[in-house]
């Protein structure tokens, strides 16, 4: 018996599924509870959520606690370093940087969230319509492709340049610009959401419970709102978090290029823009707003990552 293969007693232990089978009874749980539990395990996501909530808290309540007027000039104390009265120093006109950051945060965050909501609304509507109604799918997707082919940054700049004055005249400098920037960011970032939502709607549409709803005569609008939308919520949430990140960065970029809010209305991007000229003498003027933007965007990105992982059925329950 030459060239034999003999295998003596061996134990081979292949990959473990993670939790012992048939040992503990599975708890009844809903999808949301499952996702939340999985999210809690994602360290980055949890950290991101904590940081983001802290920033929001600071920005909303900070001005009341700190109590310094961001536009108060105090030329004698200009370009000061970090001190108890001015935790982040002052700028070249003696304005308190910390107060400016807080005020700027309010603007930047509200622009970010509002713009995100707008783009989410547009994207979801178009995505749902395209996914659910076959006749609309072709033209709506062509429209999406068209918008995707537009050179966004140049067009953004152009639109702002064109309509800035008119809006300023109609609504006042702050609100006018706010509306313009929110609108502009909103209508140029919905495409990704639309694609994702359409894909999700297409897959949900084929499922049995939708068929069941149709067979008992439920009207289309009700099917969409009660059955399709809740199941499509997950990718929408991921889109939402990433949308905030993009919106904040875009607004800051626009301000940085001088085409955002006017100079007496601080946003983080604007503060950076103003600070660049004084970079050599007072680098903290660019560091603080930059850090603020980066930290906010980073935390939001981590939250989005956490949600995306939590929704991935392959990872969940591992």
């Amino acid at each position: 018996m030459i060239d034999q293969v003999s295998v003596a007693p061996e134990k081979v232990i292949p990959p473990a599924p993670g939790s012992p089978v048939a040992a503990e009874p599975r708890k009844q749980s809903t999808l949301t509870a499952d996702v939340w539990r999985q999210f809690r395990q994602h360290k980055g996501g949890v950290m991101g959520a904590i940081v983001f909530l802290t920033i929001i808290f600071l920005v909303v309540f900070g001005p009341y606690i700190h109590g310094v007027d961001p536009s108060a000039l105090n030329v004698r104390e200009r370009n000061a370093g970090i001190s108890l009265a001015h935790p982040m120093g002052t700028d070249n006109l003696g304005r308190d940087t910390f107060a400016q950051i807080l005020a700027g945060g309010r603007t930047s965050l509200s622009v970010g969230v509002t713009a995100m909501l707008l783009s989410l609304f547009v994207g979801t509507t178009i995505g749902v319509l395209a996914g659910y109604f076959k006749k609309l799918e072709g033209p709506l997707m062509r429209l999406t492709d068209l918008f995707l082919a537009l050179p966004l940054l140049p067009l953004l700049l152009v639109i702002i340049m064109l309509f800035r004055d008119t809006l300023r005249r109609s609504f006042g400098p702050e609100t006018g610009i706010f509306m313009l920037i929110v609108f502009v960011i909103g209508i140029t970032s919905w495409m990704q959401t639309a694609r994702i939502v359409r894909g999700a709607v297409l897959s949900v549409k084929e499922q049995e419970f939708v068929l069941a709803a149709k067979s008992i005569g439920t009207r289309e609008r009700r099917i969409i709102t009660r059955h399709i939308l809740p199941n499509v919520l997950s990718p929408i949430m991921v889109s939402a978090t990433l949308g905030i990140a993009t919106a904040i960065i875009t607004e800051s970029a626009l301000s940085f290029l001088g085409l955002g809010f006017p100079s007496d209305f601080p946003t983080w991007g604007r503060l950076l823009f103003d600070g660049v000229n004084f970079m050599q003498i007072n680098p903290s003027r660019v560091i603080w707003p930059g850090l603020a933007i980066s930290l906010t965007v980073l935390s939001v990105n981590y939250i989005g990552d956490g949600i995306r992982d939590a929704l991935d059925p392959r990872i969940r329950g591992r």
Partner: peptide, 10 residues
């Protein structure tokens, strides 16, 4: 994650 706990293959 697999592991051959013991044995031979001649």
């Amino acid at each position: 994650p697999a592991e051959i706990a013991s044995g031979r293959v001649n």
